[in-house]
Write a protein that binds this DNA or RNA. Structure first.
Length: 288
DNA sequence: AAAGAGTACAACCGCCACCCT
DNA sequence: CAGGGTGGCGGTTGTACTCTT
């Protein structure tokens, strides 16, 4: 409230004098109310800025310097479990702040994982870690969209976001950039990191792996532990799940056509979209 | 030596949950 | 219950420094 009335709120880096004033103020008055701190400390800063400075730099017990290997291991482990919940991660690393850990993640750990071929979002191996040359594929970037949590995005963006890269041999095959050959190749590649015992050359099997509804059925059925190959599933489950898949697939395809019109592409392109969309996000929950 | 690119870290912004009136 | 104030959080941007050409 008072902060909004102040016309000359200072921003940017803190000077040693400002730090000194803030520290003295907090020692004397405590931190019961941050909005009152700037006035008490004689600072042209907002309370929020004072709080941040205190929490990240001035409060006692903060560690400085580079992260030890042990700390790095803890961050990696916790990030795998908690995701980007930096504040929660910070509670397990005494003397480190959430901001510090977040910065370290973005500037160092994330890159390290990518270098090792590990997807920093999922901590799984990246599916197709090949170099992507966007200059050679201008047309497909704008043409084909897939659904991603209800939002439209280009397939390229989706792949980039999920650290899935295709090399140039997989592009420019047709207007959409995909054909059935590509799909088959992609299935083979993903198979390596997925479940080698499945036969991906079989259409039904590959679709079964792709489709979340069928995966759910499969996961919940007793067959899950007894059959490593979906082709060996009891006929009843197979028929049931296949029907559900066809139903779901038709409805998804209609939706895509509604949005994309004639740009929706051919069926193989659509299958490619489904494969990437479903496989990347849901693989882990089924097979791990 | 200088300019541009890259990197690491600090700080800001917007959002949300909670509390109080 | 509504609305404003506040603290906390995560994403993003800004900035200073280093490296490369």
């Amino acid at each position: 409230m008072n902060e909004k009335k102040l016309k000359n709120i200072k921003k940017g880096l803190w000077s040693p004098e400002e730090d000194e004033n803030l520290l003295a103020c907090i020692i004397r008055f405590g931190v019961a109310s941050w909005p009152s701190v700037p006035h008490r400390a004689g600072l042209q800063r907002c309370g929020k800025s004072c709080r941040l400075r205190w929490v990240n730099h001035l409060r006692p017990g903060l560690k400085r310097g580079s992260f030890s290997q042990q700390e790095q291991d803890i961050i990696l482990h916790l990030h795998q479990v908690l995701g980007n919940r930096w504040a929660q991660i910070a509670t397990k690393l005494p003397g480190r702040t959430d901001n510090e850990i977040k910065n370290f993640w973005h500037s160092c750990l994330k890159k390290k994982l990518i270098k090792q071929g590990v997807d920093p979002n999922t901590h799984n191996p990246m599916l197709v870690p090949k170099e992507f040359n966007e200059n050679k594929t201008p047309e497909w970037q704008e043409v084909f969209h897939i659904r991603n949590n209800g939002r439209l995005m280009t397939l390229e963006d989706y792949f980039m976001k999920n650290n899935v890269f295709l090399d140039e041999s997989h592009m420019g095959i047709n207007q959409m950039g995909f054909d059935s050959n590509l799909l088959a190749q992609y299935q083979q590649m993903t198979c390596e990191t997925a479940a080698p015992s499945f036969d991906f050359s079989d259409t039904l099997t590959s679709r079964t792996i792709m489709d979340p509804f069928i995966k759910k059925e499969y996961r919940e059925s007793s067959a899950c532990t007894n059959y490593s190959n979906i082709n060996n599933l009891p006929a009843e489950i197979l028929t049931n799940t296949t029907n559900k898949y066809e139903e779901w697939n038709a409805s998804e395809w209609q939706q895509l056509q509604k949005v994309q019109g004639s740009n929706a592409g051919d069926s193989d392109a659509y299958q490619m979209g489904l494969l990437s969309e479903n496989f990347v996000g849901e693989y882990k929950s089924v097979f791990h």
